[in-house]
Design a protein around this nucleic acid. Structure first.
Length: 130
DNA sequence: GCATTGACGAAGG
DNA sequence: CCCTTCGCCAATG
């Protein structure tokens, strides 16, 4: 959309050549995502908040984009937006893959939205507590 | 090197 | 309740 000029400032330049060494931020996101209990879901903002970058929930989503190439599989299907909508389903192998995986774990999904999202919600900050 | 986009979120109308 | 705008940071063109 619009947005004015945005000077780029990379705080951490990491060579993407070696896939063995992924971005630490990515690893953190994946790590948290993998800790999400089966049958539960969390949000990008929750993970971002846990990592201390709650204002950058988008970066979490970006990190998930790299989850596809993560070695240990990342249950990205358990990560949805704050509305409980499967916004990232289109990034899976198939648009229906995400919902299928969730349904398989006992998470009811209807119209790309998680039913009883608040109940299914799993906050790393609260659960992992720190 | 600037402009645009994005698997988001909160606030405002 | 729905839609628009702004903010944030990184990646891509």
């Amino acid at each position: 959309m619009k947005k004015a000029a945005k000077p780029k400032k990379a705080k951490e330049q990491i060579p993407l050549k070696d896939k063995s060494k992924e971005y630490s931020f990515f690893e953190d996101v994946w790590s948290v995502a993998r800790q999400v209990p089966k049958g539960r879901v969390t949000s990008y903002g929750a993970i971002a908040n846990y990592l201390g970058t709650k204002l950058s929930a988008r970066m979490v989503g970006w990190a998930m984009n790299g989850a596809s190439k993560a070695k240990p599989k990342v249950p990205a299907q358990r990560v949805v937006n704050r509305n409980g909508m499967l916004s990232g389903k289109m990034h899976f192998e198939t648009p229906t893959r995400m919902q299928e995986l969730l349904a398989k774990e006992g998470v009811r999904v209807e119209k790309d939205k998680v039913i009883d999202f608040e109940k299914r919600f799993w906050d790393p900050l609260k659960e992992l507590g720190l």
